[in-house]
Write a protein that binds this DNA or RNA. Sequence first.
DNA 1: TGCTAACTGAGGCACGTGCATCATTTCAAG
DNA 2: CTTGAAATGATGCACGTGCCTCAGTTAGCA
Lengths: 340, 340
Amino acid sequence: MLRPTTKDLAKEAGVSRATVDRVLNGREGVKQKTVDRVNEAIKKLGFVRNIQAANLAKSQKYRFVFALPKSGDQFLDAIIHHIDEAGSIFAEDLVWCEVHQIDENDPHNVSAFLGTLDAATTSGVAIMAPESPQVRDAIYRLKERGVAALPFISDQTSMDDHGVGMNNNSAGATAANLIGRFNRSETGSVMVIAESMQSRDSLERRLGFDSELRQHFPSMRVLPSLETYGNYERAHDIIANTVQNNPDLAGLYVMSSEARTPLTIVNELCGTASFIKIAHERTPFTEAELRAGRLDSIIAQDPGHLVRSAVRKLKATVDGRQPKSSQERIRVEVILRTNL
Amino acid sequence: MLRPTTKDLAKEAGVSRATVDRVLNGREGVKQKTVDRVNEAIKKLGFVRNIQAANLAKSQKYRFVFALPKSGDQFLDAIIHHIDEAGSIFAEDLVWCEVHQIDENDPHNVSAFLGTLDAATTSGVAIMAPESPQVRDAIYRLKERGVAALPFISDQTSMDDHGVGMNNNSAGATAANLIGRFNRSETGSVMVIAESMQSRDSLERRLGFDSELRQHFPSMRVLPSLETYGNYERAHDIIANTVQNNPDLAGLYVMSSEARTPLTIVNELCGTASFIKIAHERTPFTEAELRAGRLDSIIAQDPGHLVRSAVRKLKATVDGRQPKSSQERIRVEVILRTNL
DNA sequence: TGCTAACTGAGGCACGTGCATCATTTCAAG
DNA sequence: CTTGAAATGATGCACGTGCCTCAGTTAGCA
């Protein structure tokens, strides 16, 4: 039977449609024996609920909120653009997406915002904010109120379980791998720049980077991570310092998603000196650098995929389904001049 | 208004729901002035047809057929696996997917199969077969009968317009780029192996490869393409010959999607001799080779993405929509040991 | 045995759209 | 003004599911 309906189910199980409905929607007051009979029929006929009809009946709408940081780097711009686009892609599934930007460095702020959301108006939230006890609590309470919550790109625990984002360990290792293989001299030191080493992302990337370089390119040497704290002067000072003290510089790995500041400074300081440079995330800036040959590779995650994956996962949670995991894995993309 | 309905449209345009229906579904017998009024209302309210309700009303189902080659390489296995998986992912959208394998080298065969499909039972076909006049004709007639048709992965013209598959020129260039950069000696010759140079895929990859190498690594030298015709003995002979005559071998590019035969032969012939090796498509075999360090990189297109993209495009065609192109672009993926 | 509580059945409306039929209005030609 | 065709309105059923009410049946217990 092509797509059996609840009617078919009822006939097969020898019960009424009302009882099938009770079983399907987990209402109580049904004998276990009857429940089993219906479940058997479901299995036998391969019944799959027609979610579209169900949504129609319930006038179900999905409203998803993306809670993002305020800081306006280009990667974030791309994310926001793709959220808008996802809104129109998923419109036919009755999905609406909204962006809300918060000061992600004040956990209280984040938690307060999450506290304002309730199931009546919001089906789910994708949260991009550093981990903290307050935020963890707020997420817990969100779920209690029936709002789906999803760690988005950054920084929540057990990312691999249910969050959306690439494997940062693998990303760091890939950066090291490329620097090691692109570097014809096989020796030299590598400069690593991050916005801050507080974040889980940076830590994991650095771990992957170190482990790969140590294991496969032992004659190269990694310098301590430089933290810019998003401050141009500070960045300039520490980078200049490092460049001066390490004449054997062979590679540069910019770990933060905003590569503009560090790369601009490095370009200024070491105009023609050539060493291998790797940065994260595809943005207008990194693309231009790659094309110009001032950057050797970009390690990227597809922002469109990130957003759509988040939407699908949130929707699956609301519908009470398991998302197909193979579709949701975010690849560590290696972008070169030739496959931009 | 959150999702206006045809009722709202009717009220806004000052006509009845019947007339709205006539306009929406392009039935005739409506004055131009009325059509305009309705269209204005659509624009003003931002009306979007609820496809789910429409499908429910029409009992619309989508049955998509994937016409694939018979030859059983591992890449094809992966594709087929993902078609099955897509079947369950898209089940909620009332989509069914079926695989039909044909002898792709006999155009008459392909065209005969396509001739058996009609709109009553089949909504669309994704076709993976070499281009030929017969097939082109058959596709034309399919469309006339109201069956959507889509070039899939391989070999039809104007791929960029509407087909599904990666940019082969870019893929070839990326292979050359990697070989050039990984090769520390900066000189040497490169062996290129294909199943056949008849196919558009191989030609485009080779063009991209040559152009990149010539432009950016001029001190390296590309050898003429070796064609295996899928024959082990022949492959063994020509590869052995090439290896013997080119002691300066620095790189190998396997262009075909089935890399097992050529790579196995090369492994046999030049056990420890190390040169850069690049192959296409992620399969159990190429993954294992990459892990073992016998392969330096895989240039891949995500088979799951290919399949889902094909389904979405076919569905969009049936629904009379434009697919969001940004989601459908197939990336040229660079896979290394570290980002498997 | 009778009584009550637990369970089950029957039926109907709603969701937004497609599609059909029949009635009514409009408008231009005669 | 009449006539008739073209245009539009009114209405109702269907799709598959959720959700509600009310009536009927069964089972457990005293």
